[in-house]
Design a protein around this nucleic acid. Structure first.
Lengths: 160, 160
DNA sequence: GATAAAATATTTAAGCATGAAATAGTGGAG
DNA sequence: CTCCACTATTTCATGCTTAAATATTTTATC
C-alpha cells in the first residue's frame, strides 16, 4: 500500500518534469522562430515557410513532388500549394509537368532561386549559430543527440 | 597561418553543429505540436492557441488586459482579439469593462471555462508525458535544464 | 478491358498570426 | 481649456495552416 503511493507519486513527478520539458522546448523554438522570421523579413523580404520550402528543394536538385514536399516539411498538402504558387510567380521555383503521369508536377529551384537560397542559407546558419552562442559545442552535441534519439523513437505512439 | 586555418575550421564545425541542433529542435517541436493539435481537435474540439489563452487566464484568476495577454503569450495584439472573441461567444471567457479606464477591458475565465480548462490541462499533461515516454527522467531533466539556461541567456542577442 | 481502390494535387472554409493603420480614451503641459 | 503624447484595442491586408471535399490519374484486381 505504501509502495503504491510512492510509485504513483514517482509517476506524477515524471509526468510533470516532462510537461516542463515540453513547455521549455516549445518556448525555445518559438523564440528562435520569431527572431528568424523577423530577420528573414528585414534582410530578404521573405518568410520562414518560404525558406523551408526552398531549403527542401535545394536538398533535392532533381525536384520533388508536391506531396514529397509536404511530407518532408511536416505540413499539410494544401499548404504547399499556396507557398509554391507565390515562389513560382516570383521566378524562384519552376514546375515541370511529367511525361508519364499527368497528375504530378515536379517542382525545383530555378537558377535564380538557387542563387538566392545560397545567400539565405549562409545568413541563416550565421544567425542560428549566433542565437546559440551561449551554448558550448559539447552541450550542442548532447542536446542534438537527445533530440535525434527522440525523433527516431517517435513512431512508437504516432498513429498510422 | 596554419593555426588560423584550424581555428576557422573549428568555428565552421561549431556553426554547423548548432544549425543541426536548431533543425532537430524545430522538428521535435513540430512533431509534438502536430500531435497535440490533433488531440485537442478530436477530444475537445479546440485548438492549441485557445488552450494557451485559457492557460494564461487560469494562471491569473483576477483577469488580464488584452495587452497583458499578448505580452505574456508572445503573440501580436490583434491576434488575441480574435481568439478571445470566439471564446467569449462560446461562454468560456468573459469581458468586463473597468470603471476608471474606458479603453481597457479585463478578460477572465468563466466558471465553465475554468472547469473545461481543468479537464484539458489534465489531458494535456498526460499526452505530453506519453509522447516523451521513451526518454528517462534523468534525460528529461538534463534536456530541460539546458533549454532553461538557453532561455535565460537569450536576452544577449535579442534586440530592445 | 471494366471496375474498384489508391495516389496526387488543388480548392475551400475556418482559424491563426503578423504588422500597420485606424479608433478611442487618458492625462499632462502650457 | 486645448493641444499633444501616450495607451489600449480593434480593424485590415496578407500570408500560413489545417482538415475536408473535389477532381483527376494511375494501379490493382478480377
Amino acid at each position: 500500500m505504501e509502495d503504491m503511493h510512492v510509485a504513483v507519486q514517482q509517476d506524477d513527478i515524471e509526468q510533470k518534469e516532462k510537461l516542463r520539458l515540453w513547455v521549455r522546448l516549445l518556448r525555445a523554438s518559438r523564440m528562435i522562430e520569431a527572431e528568424l522570421r523577423n530577420r528573414f523579413a528585414v534582410e530578404f523580404n521573405t518568410t520562414l515557410p518560404r525558406f523551408d520550402v526552398m531549403a527542401a528543394l535545394d536538398r533535392f536538385p532533381d525536384g520533388m513532388l508536391m506531396s514529397d514536399l509536404s511530407r518532408y516539411l511536416l505540413v499539410s498538402n494544401g499548404n504547399v500549394t499556396g507557398i509554391i504558387e507565390r515562389l513560382v510567380q516570383e521566378g524562384f521555383v519552376s514546375r515541370a509537368k511529367r511525361e508519364g503521369d499527368k497528375r504530378t508536377s515536379i517542382v525545383s529551384l530555378t537558377a535564380e532561386g538557387c542563387a538566392l537560397f545560397a545567400q539565405m542559407a549562409d545568413a541563416h546558419e550565421r544567425w542560428v549559430s549566433a542565437y546559440l552562442n551561449a551554448m558550448s559545442l559539447d552541450e550542442a552535441r548532447t542536446l542534438s543527440g537527445m533530440l535525434e534519439s527522440f525523433r527516431s523513437n517517435w513512431e512508437d505512439h504516432s498513429p498510422e
